[in-house]
Design a protein around this nucleic acid. Structure first.
Lengths: 223, 223, 223, 223
DNA sequence: TATGAATGAGCATTCATTCAT
DNA sequence: CATGAATGAATGCTCATTCAT
């Protein structure tokens, strides 16, 4: 009896309000991140104050600083999050296909269909808010985009081999990888951030045009 | 004869010391612009204070405001200047060639050889500092890049005709134009802003790779 | 007994240190208002900087902006405060008397004895600092003096009836009300702001002269 | 023909350009004063910059400083001008009458009919812009209003004698003089600055009410 | 005399960050 | 953990005034 009680007590004490608190803590973190994302995207990083973020997340200013070292860290986290999501989207699409060429194409299409359309906020964070805001951010951006370029480069090499492409200069492939990212970035930005609703709805088709263009560019290098 | 004299007199009367003052005024304006450019590029827009600019131009703060309405206008002017230069560079290269394809290629190469290498500061202003800094700037950026896209689009249509390319969907050509700008933008940025000196020196070669890639992409659309 | 305890408990639980903090907040607000009043009166609104106010209140500049939206709001609040106090003083004096005539006289005397002598700072704020400083202030001043004129007008009508006065033109009474305020304003200003100490001490006697003059003016309109 | 031309030329050169320049100089001074008046009245003293004044007078900033020591002097001059005009208006009206009482009344009426209606800008300068703007101005205002009070006081004594009024306390008359100015000031301000067009048109009638009120107040002191 | 470019002190206001409770 | 009052450095901008031409 006493044991039972104790057990119950223990069970309760193992996760009385502690569990709830932990869950709440995670939720708070998430809420803050989403609040910041929304404001950064819609008002801009510098036009958003920490108080704005706190208000939108319905917490006090101090709380923001409990979860994040400073305002910059919020943007950093959002940026990393964006890069992570993007890499996952691209990676999965690429690997799912049975042949490299198909995978490469699929990744391009996924960029528009799975990333841009589903996470427009992340596009803004990655390609607008994270640009030229601070030393640290710029550093992070360089690093992250480096990874992305490497991903594309690696995939490109596989594809090239499969397609029988041989680059005279090893850096040519690198340039192509960078260029491909450039296409994706600008096309996404142009038709998501600046275009009218109609264009946004057709982003999927637009993406396919871009992908075709890229695949054509590649075949140029065929032996 | 009399006319000649009169003209000379007029020229002189129109400008005793006034001419010098006018020239000095223009020089000041230029000096301020260059000071701002340097600081914006090297420290970033928000990290540069008006006082910094004044110091670097060796004038007082008030003088900055005599020549420019506010800090934002400085960035705006630099941005416009960059777009103007870029359009001139591209336009001249395109028109100089005897065939559209050659012109299109030449323009691409000129982007790297004549614009990026000769005006690295402008590259930074156009593709980094002017991003997400203010409502007005973003608006200007959209407008200016719209023009640029239109330029590329127009050239592209000429080239396409000459190459026997027919786009099923009229927007496909637009997407391609946007994509081309994306390639140029990112390749330039990658190898000018983030790369080591070696890469910078080879930017010309790198540019040719990019151009090849683009020309290849175009031929994809050949009937 | 139990109730008593509960009440005490409730009172305590409602306000552990919160009550003290609330009180401190109110005190700060008050301190800032008084600091601003003193400086506005003695140096003038435009000659007083927000830093001056912060220094005098022994807080930081930021704190001033935590309590007040901007410098103008401080003056606005002081102005409203002055108008409020004045209306209370006049209203109470008027209502305390058993006959309207007596009340009207009493209010006049109270203006000098209870308002000017006891709140000389408010006189300065109302009749000097609040004049021609900003669009908003001027608007507020018009509104507030409108209320004051209405008060005097209402009282005047009661008095007039009681004194058997009939105004041929309804606006005549309004003009008289305005005129009465003019007398009070200028006499107060003349003998409080510009006069020597001797005059200030005799402000009470001076006020009685003014009141007599007014009451005499009224009897002019007797049928 | 040639002679005629020469004569004309000579005539012009006889009153060389010196006369014209002198006239122009006076005109400039006047133009500047009027420009400043208009702006001070409509925008307020602090909201008007020296550049604004220069622009409105169609001269350069430096020229303003050639004619006036500083911005404050402009307001000073306008203030003095206003006081001068006012004193002339009141004085003439007073002296024109054959009996002091009539003169006193006439002066009151002239204040509204000849001063307020004809020089509304001066009313604003005297009773609004000159209030609490600077140490010097406030000093001047005190001095000038002192003179005005003395004028009224002197007239009042004459009138009183003629009306058989004897003030027990000599200062009572002074208070009355101050009070009379207060009435004029506030009534004028209320119906000229803050009122609608209709009231402005009836300012003359309104003035008569005010004067009646004053004359009635005086008779109160009759033995 | 007139000009207008140049000055620079001065000021209101913002906002990321801290910390006592 | 959460709060929110407090901080104060930083900054964009204004404007009366000067002075070389």
């Amino acid at each position: 009896m006493a044991n039972k009680n104790d057990n119950i007590k223990n069970e309760q004490s193992l996760s009385p309000s502690a569990v709830r608190r932990l869950r709440e803590k995670e939720q708070r973190y998430e809420t803050l991140l989403r609040a910041a994302e929304h404001l950064f995207v819609h008002r801009g990083y510098h036009e958003t104050s920490v108080e704005n973020i706190a208000d939108r997340a319905e917490v006090s200013v101090g709380t923001v600083y409990f979860y994040f070292k400073n305002k910059e860290e919020l943007l950093m986290k959002l940026f990393s999050e964006g890069v992570y999501t993007l890499r996952v989207v691209l990676g999965q699409a690429f690997l799912k296909a049975d042949r490299p060429e198909k995978g490469f194409e699929a990744a391009g299409i996924a960029f528009f269909d799975e990333f841009c359309i589903k996470h427009p906020g992340k596009v803004a964070i990655l390609f607008k808010e994270a640009v030229g805001q601070s030393q640290l951010l710029e550093e992070a951006r360089r690093t992250m985009l480096k990874k992305l370029t490497d991903d594309v480069f690696t995939a490109l090499m596989t594809v090239s081999e499969s397609m029988g492409i041989v680059y005279k200069n090893p850096r040519t492939a690198q340039v192509v990888a960078v260029g491909i990212l450039g296409i994706y970035e600008r096309v996404a930005y142009q038709y998501l951030m600046w275009a009218d609703e109609h264009d946004k709805n057709e982003l999927s088709t637009i993406g396919r045009d871009a992908v075709n263009f890229i695949m054509g560019g590649l075949s140029e290098f065929k032996a």
